[in-house]
Amino acid sequence: MTVRDKVIEIIAEQAMLETSDVTMESTPEDLGIDSLGLVESIFAIEEAFDISIPFNANDPSESDFDISSVGRIVAGIEKLIAEQKS
């Protein structure tokens, strides 16, 4: 399973949607994921890829991790995997 497919699966589960409803352009808000849901998704992603995501729920925009869309999240995770596994 690709990083992208796994992330979509985790986000879809969190949003209680079908994976086909989650696109690369979707934002967490579009999918109905609130701040608590986002924190839980980040945790699930960290567990799935065994990485650590620099995400601060106090001020997501100040984090070094872009969560503005599913596509950005996937890109961020791919970068983290490359950095943290190397």
Binding site: L36, V39, E40, I42, F43, E46, E47, S52
Partner: peptide, 9 residues
């Protein structure tokens, strides 16, 4: 288990 991460809730 020695894990360093727990569920956010």
């Amino acid at each position: 288990e020695g894990k360093n991460r727990v569920h956010p809730f």
